[in-house]
Nucleic acid binder design. Sequence first.
DNA 1: TTGTACGCGTTATCAG
DNA 2: CTGATAACGCGTACAA
Lengths: 339, 339
Amino acid sequence: MTTISDVAKAAGVSTATVSRVLSNSAAVKPLTRDAVLKAVEALDYKPNALARQMRTQETRTVIVIVPDISNTFFSEILFSIERCAQKYDYQILIADMHNQPNIESYYFQAIQQRTVDGIISLSANVAQKLMEQVAEEYPIVVANQYLENFNIPNVTINNINAAEEITEHLIKLGHTHIAHITSQPSLLLYRDRFNGYISALAKHGLPIDLELVRYGDSSIEGGYKQMTALLELNKPISAIFAAGDVMAVGAIKALKSAGLRVPEDIAVVGFDDIEISGFWEPSLTTVRPPKRQIGEVAFEKLLKLMRKQPLTQMKDILDYEIVIRESCGYHQNERRFVT
Amino acid sequence: MTTISDVAKAAGVSTATVSRVLSNSAAVKPLTRDAVLKAVEALDYKPNALARQMRTQETRTVIVIVPDISNTFFSEILFSIERCAQKYDYQILIADMHNQPNIESYYFQAIQQRTVDGIISLSANVAQKLMEQVAEEYPIVVANQYLENFNIPNVTINNINAAEEITEHLIKLGHTHIAHITSQPSLLLYRDRFNGYISALAKHGLPIDLELVRYGDSSIEGGYKQMTALLELNKPISAIFAAGDVMAVGAIKALKSAGLRVPEDIAVVGFDDIEISGFWEPSLTTVRPPKRQIGEVAFEKLLKLMRKQPLTQMKDILDYEIVIRESCGYHQNERRFVT
DNA sequence: TTGTACGCGTTATCAG
DNA sequence: CTGATAACGCGTACAA
């Protein structure tokens, strides 16, 4: 392994000068500079990043905690974070939780052990106190998700409003019996979407039937099972609001398996606007969070924390869009109930 | 920041003893051991991983280079690598190339700069010489992909055979005009699948028409466009072999948009067996590489390299499966041509 | 069983 | 503009 002192020797200068040349940190006479660069080239010298990081006490690496990397919703946000990081010359380390709760705490060690400079968590499925405690000492931003009375820099959308709005869209299309398919109620994100759904029903004087609210895995399989359970209730249902597109896709699959047409027999709307939503049949009406912007704002926020600059605001609430496609049956108004 | 010497002071011992306790590297009297652990607890001491890594010259971190993390094919392999890494107490760093060529070389720096102990690349879209040169000095395993006369530890399946077999499946179903949708011919992986396709046609004395072979992005969009181009040829085509499920899905979408039925009017088969393939309509007949095993074998191989143990074999060729579902129209034999 | 002291490879400080 | 040298925090001979 060739070190900086090997280079120094070869170039006939001190290690300090080599370091100066390599980091452009101070003026060096062009002649000696060339000599150093030549030696670097000749010896194929690569600076030892570990030693540098140890000396400077920064790794220029940020860890991103992702609930489930195989869900394209997250990989899209991740993409935007990566691009942003690249711009500022930071590396990204990806931590996949595979949807298991409380794994964040494991990754928090990384920052306490100085192996990364900051954390962006797309998950908040964790002991809140621990998280806030770590956040007091280290740069952390939570994006997409959040907790109650949350005292950590945070980037999100208003899930209550979004859920209410898309539910109202169904109501305006004439639906009065709308079921809700969702996931882990331990996540405030899902509770907010549930609350938006309830509040839309209430606002329009529609009956609320909690049997029409099902909880399951946030996966195609999960959506399929929940939808099947709903059908087995044999209650009148004319529309479904799924709290995630992945579950919506599973629900549509279940409806088709049961011989029902979407949206003619039952309308379905989702949340997230993942890639396949536009390709699915029928294409999915859904809520589109500003994925690119979420990533950018989260990284810029983290950057400020890492640079110990003051945050202008703790919480950024970004705008979402309602994307109307086929699955809500926008173009038809006659409704009939399944049983 | 509390260091090991803070702990030593608090516990009334030397730093060496603290180190011994923390790493269980040597016998320590239970009494002093307790004192040390108490001090660690009291001061909330976390060892500085950087310093440790610098001292031991190992990071226990492996970087995995992924062509496109939003393609679930790769996230499934990744999952298996992660599980394996966890077992051996290694961390995983994910490098997403976003399908751009020659980005691997950027990540090769990571290993040359000692920031990771090894590399698993799920891509081989790069200057071969550079790769082999780096591989001579550092632990690298290439999985899923490979190059010609490849002198790097490698885990893969026999793509030629798999492509030939699934093409033959179409031929046995009565198809004589089979088109091929594929991607970057610069990748040997795709050239091999192409060769398997050609060899199946040849074996059965079917005419080979290179106009029926289309190249494009390995994405839903890409498959859609290629299929559209194929239809515009106005040539008789009764089946499609897509070199990836993502493209197959796009092709089916295009066929449906053109008012054609799959598999009744045109049959489609894919490659990879990604998650949605089983949920798509029609569900996809495809080749299933042993994703879990690929990850495991790759990691175990890398482990040997990192431990400087001898490799029993350079190249592992694993078994694949042909998964028969709806999109090939297995249950019907009458064929008719479009146009 | 424990402590002292050195070195891992780099950058930063201080003289010159 | 350049060089000598002291850290950074830890693990480990070696000596006790």
